[in-house]
Design a protein around this nucleic acid. Sequence first.
DNA 1: TGCCAGGCCCTCTTTAGGGCCTT
Length: 203
Amino acid sequence: MDTLAVIDFETTGMSPGQGARATEIAVVLLRGGCVVDRYQSLMNTGAWVPPFIEELTGISNAMLEDAPPAVRVMREAAEFVGNTPMVAHNAAFDRRFWDAELSRAGRERRQAFACTLLLARRVYPDAPDHKLATLVRHAGLPMAGRAHRALADAEMAASLWLGIRRVLVERYRLADPDHATLCALQGVPRGELAAWIGRRSGA
DNA sequence: TGCCAGGCCCTCTTTAGGGCCTT
């Protein structure tokens, strides 16, 4: 099983293209099916946190005043991740913030993101919905700390990744699925998962 | 002035519209 970096951002809004900035980052490293290391930090970008976001995440403007500068945090996070393939829940969101904040720190992304949301829609089609916390409960996985804090959400996304992987191995007989395989699998049309795996296994 | 995310994915679809998911 390859080493993976599961990431989660808390932010001031939905899109860096509309001026939203990151407020907190967490990365957990998965190796051999276990969390082997963690990086977590608040980050001060100078951006204002709207009251709704403060209520959602518990991250206040006062907390960010004392946080380390975003450039330093992103450089540390980039060193921590290196070239390790990445995973996130609704990866398009975290990938946009990773790219935007890295760029401000003078760095560039070097690896692909896999998405537990796209995978879960295929592997758990009967879940009540495909929010991270719902999927963790649905799959009988352990909850981790306060939802909408970066480290707890990254831990839950890591747990979900391992749960998805376990279903693929046990139910679909997919041998040792790696990051690249799951990146391909997340684009398979819904309902065609078994057929796709069958063709792949027979190839 | 009015609008402002974006990609996936379903359906009352494909010459479109709207819900889901992330904060």
